[in-house]
Measured scan of single mutants.
Amino acid sequence: MRKLSDELLIESYFKATEMNLNRDFIELIENEIKRRSLGHIISV
């Protein structure tokens, strides 16, 4: 996760939620978004 750019991480989050991927996977992405202080972009 740390090698993904912020932009790609956010894009991955939206794609994963759109495709209804595994909730655990989405939570991993959400946690990384929060760690990077980007939660305001997706309202996490």
Results as ranks from 00 to 15, higher is better:
19 M>E: 08
34 K>E: 07
23 R>Y: 08
19 M>T: 05
31 N>Q: 14
14 F>T: 06
36 R>D: 00
24 D>A: 13
25 F>T: 07
22 N>K: 08
1 M>I: 15
33 I>K: 00
33 I>M: 13
7 E>Q: 12
9 L>H: 00
10 I>A: 03
18 E>N: 09
20 N>C: 08
40 H>R: 06
6 D>T: 09
42 I>F: 03
32 E>I: 02
11 E>K: 12
18 E>Y: 09
25 F>Q: 07
23 R>V: 07
39 G>A: 11
25 F>D: 06
3 K>I: 07
25 F>E: 07
16 A>R: 06
1 M>N: 03
23 R>C: 05
27 E>M: 14
38 L>C: 03
8 L>Q: 15
24 D>M: 10
6 D>M: 05
43 S>Y: 07
13 Y>E: 00
5 S>R: 04
16 A>K: 03
39 G>S: 14
7 E>N: 08
44 V>N: 14
21 L>W: 12
40 H>F: 12
15 K>H: 13
9 L>W: 01
7 E>M: 11
7 E>T: 09
9 L>F: 02
12 S>D: 03
24 D>N: 10
4 L>C: 07
7 E>A: 13
4 L>W: 15
30 E>P: 00
37 S>P: 02
41 I>W: 11
16 A>T: 03
7 E>V: 10
12 S>C: 14
3 K>W: 11
32 E>K: 00
18 E>H: 12
13 Y>F: 09
25 F>V: 09
33 I>W: 02
40 H>L: 07
5 S>D: 05
13 Y>R: 01
16 A>P: 01
6 D>V: 06
22 N>V: 06
29 I>K: 00
37 S>K: 14
1 M>C: 12
25 F>R: 04
11 E>N: 08
38 L>G: 02
33 I>D: 00
15 K>V: 09
24 D>S: 12
11 E>R: 14
38 L>A: 02
42 I>M: 05
12 S>A: 15
44 V>D: 13
34 K>F: 14
39 G>F: 15
32 E>G: 01
3 K>Y: 08
25 F>I: 11
3 K>G: 14
28 L>T: 07
33 I>C: 03
13 Y>P: 00
39 G>Q: 12
18 E>S: 13
15 K>L: 13
17 T>R: 15
6 D>E: 04
15 K>F: 13
41 I>C: 10
36 R>F: 02
27 E>A: 12
28 L>D: 05
40 H>G: 07
29 I>N: 00
6 D>F: 06
6 D>S: 05
35 R>H: 04
29 I>V: 05
10 I>E: 02
16 A>M: 05
17 T>I: 15
43 S>A: 13
37 S>I: 05
37 S>Y: 11
1 M>P: 04
40 H>M: 07
4 L>Y: 09
4 L>V: 05
11 E>Q: 14
7 E>S: 10
36 R>H: 01
17 T>E: 06
3 K>E: 15
32 E>N: 01
26 I>T: 03
8 L>F: 08
32 E>C: 02
31 N>V: 10
26 I>Y: 03
13 Y>W: 15
24 D>R: 10
40 H>C: 08
4 L>R: 02
44 V>S: 14
25 F>P: 01
34 K>W: 13
16 A>V: 05
8 L>R: 11
43 S>R: 12
20 N>M: 10
37 S>A: 11
16 A>N: 03
28 L>A: 12
5 S>C: 06
35 R>A: 06
21 L>H: 06
37 S>W: 08
39 G>H: 12
13 Y>C: 02
8 L>Y: 08
26 I>L: 08
18 E>Q: 13
41 I>E: 06
16 A>L: 05
20 N>V: 06
3 K>D: 15
43 S>K: 13
32 E>D: 01
22 N>Y: 06
26 I>G: 01
40 H>I: 07
10 I>D: 01
29 I>M: 09
11 E>P: 01
5 S>N: 05
1 M>E: 02
38 L>Q: 02
35 R>G: 03
37 S>R: 14
33 I>S: 00
12 S>T: 15
15 K>M: 12
10 I>C: 04
22 N>I: 06
43 S>Q: 13
41 I>K: 09
30 E>D: 03
17 T>S: 09
2 R>N: 09
43 S>C: 09
11 E>D: 09
29 I>F: 09
30 E>I: 15
34 K>Y: 14
22 N>L: 07
26 I>E: 01
44 V>T: 13
2 R>L: 14
43 S>I: 13
1 M>R: 02
44 V>R: 12
19 M>F: 07
28 L>I: 11
2 R>Y: 12
33 I>T: 01
27 E>W: 10
21 L>R: 07
34 K>T: 08
5 S>P: 08
20 N>K: 10
43 S>D: 12
36 R>E: 00
43 S>F: 08
